[in-house]
Simulated scan of single mutants.
Amino acid sequence: MKKFLSMTLITVMTMCLFTGCVQKTNNTLKISKKIRIGVCIANINDKFLSYMLNEMKNYSKSLNDVEVVFVDSKGDSNIQLAQVENFISEGADAIIVNPVDTNSSKPITDKAKAAKVPIISLNEPFQIQNDAASYIDSDSKQSGILEMEYLAKKMNFKGNVVIIMGRMDNEAQRLRTEAYHEVIAKYPDMKIVAMQPADWNRARGMALMQNWLESGKQIDVVVANNDEMAIGALKAIEAAGKLGKITVGGIDTTPDALDYLKSGRLAVTVFQDGAGQAKCAIETAVKVAKGESVEKRVIWQNELVTPEDADKYIDKWGKWKAN
């Protein structure tokens, strides 16, 4: 009898090590474990994604009985697939993925579907989105329209425009650039004179703008798919002594962009509430892990941010950091 009791105690203690806690309820032992969520970020060197990552980490700390593991996919779809496979093998209850490349994401959803692990796409859709539990993002087409319409009006609907694009395999790049074309097509006195990708990167945006300026192109407006590339363009414009002569816009409303906006160097940006999306992703993952129903698509509407609004959004960033 003593041997039997000893073996029972060892078994319970072992289960406690793996599940986190043992609770006694109505003279029975109830085993409970933390919900495990895996998060793959496409590239944490991307400024906007780094802010989303920080918000997810901060929010996750406030949750009881939820363990969230974050990994950086380093801009590589193969690395991201391997990370998802690891999360599945380690027993994740739900997985959040910010896809590196929508068109290369089918193996990811295939693996999750086969393992019956709910998966959520964040800030970029999967190729087979129907195989995912949810998709959380801002309206990329709307952000491009807001940005370009403001710049067009500021320029009295005339001038030469250059477009700095994000990664060519990214849906946000495609939709924002498509929006620019649609807006510019409405105004006969506006013309696109060049467009090229700078991969969401400040340094590449700066190098691209330097090349355009050195080529002698007549440029009146720079419309960039994100703030980082817009800031890079502004640095090249300033170095060329043309600050104030070329109007520049971006998207994301990052803290750095708000500094440029407040000083008048950046004409406009667009707020897509990365913190709100980040929190929503974690909340959604917890719900699906518990077997609760969630929205298949959660699309956030964007807000135009002009120099007059800079302080308001600087205050928002301050509140997020405080949390």
Rank of each mutant, 00 (worst) to 15 (best):
residue 214 E to A: 14
residue 251 I to G: 06
residue 22 V to G: 05
residue 148 M to P: 00
residue 36 R to T: 14
residue 316 K to D: 01
residue 165 M to T: 13
residue 208 L to M: 14
residue 270 V to P: 06
residue 309 D to R: 02
residue 287 K to Q: 08
residue 25 T to H: 11
residue 272 Q to M: 02
residue 142 Q to S: 14
residue 160 N to E: 11
residue 252 D to L: 01
residue 118 P to Y: 12
residue 227 D to K: 03
residue 67 E to Y: 00
residue 182 E to C: 03
residue 40 C to R: 00
residue 53 L to M: 12
residue 275 A to M: 07
residue 225 N to H: 05
residue 11 T to R: 07
residue 39 V to W: 02
residue 267 A to W: 00
residue 157 F to I: 04
residue 85 E to R: 08
residue 150 Y to N: 02
residue 34 K to G: 04
residue 317 W to S: 07
residue 68 V to L: 06
residue 178 E to M: 13
residue 103 N to M: 05
residue 57 K to M: 01
residue 276 G to L: 11
residue 147 E to P: 10
residue 266 L to M: 11
residue 288 V to L: 05
residue 10 I to P: 10
residue 31 I to V: 15
residue 262 K to V: 13
residue 261 L to C: 09
residue 306 T to C: 03
residue 8 T to E: 10
residue 79 I to N: 11
residue 245 K to H: 13
residue 205 G to P: 06
residue 207 A to G: 11
residue 238 E to V: 03
residue 150 Y to T: 02
residue 45 N to C: 04
residue 72 D to A: 02
residue 177 T to H: 07
residue 206 M to K: 12
residue 167 R to Q: 12
residue 57 K to S: 01
residue 7 M to S: 10
residue 123 N to H: 03
residue 97 V to H: 02
residue 164 I to D: 00
residue 72 D to P: 01
residue 303 E to L: 12
residue 294 V to T: 13
residue 302 N to D: 15
residue 289 A to I: 11
residue 174 R to E: 07
residue 156 N to F: 07
residue 35 I to N: 03
residue 61 K to H: 09
residue 144 G to F: 06
residue 103 N to Y: 05
residue 207 A to I: 08
residue 188 P to G: 08
residue 306 T to I: 12
residue 319 K to D: 10
residue 20 G to W: 07
residue 316 K to E: 06
residue 164 I to E: 01
residue 267 A to Y: 01
residue 214 E to G: 05
residue 118 P to V: 09
residue 291 G to A: 09
residue 188 P to S: 14
residue 102 T to P: 08
residue 165 M to H: 05
residue 192 I to S: 10
residue 79 I to A: 15
residue 117 V to I: 15
residue 7 M to C: 02
residue 132 A to N: 04
residue 242 K to D: 06
residue 252 D to N: 07
residue 268 V to S: 10
residue 8 T to S: 11
residue 282 I to E: 01
residue 137 D to F: 11
residue 99 P to A: 09
residue 50 S to E: 08
residue 91 G to V: 06
residue 181 H to V: 12
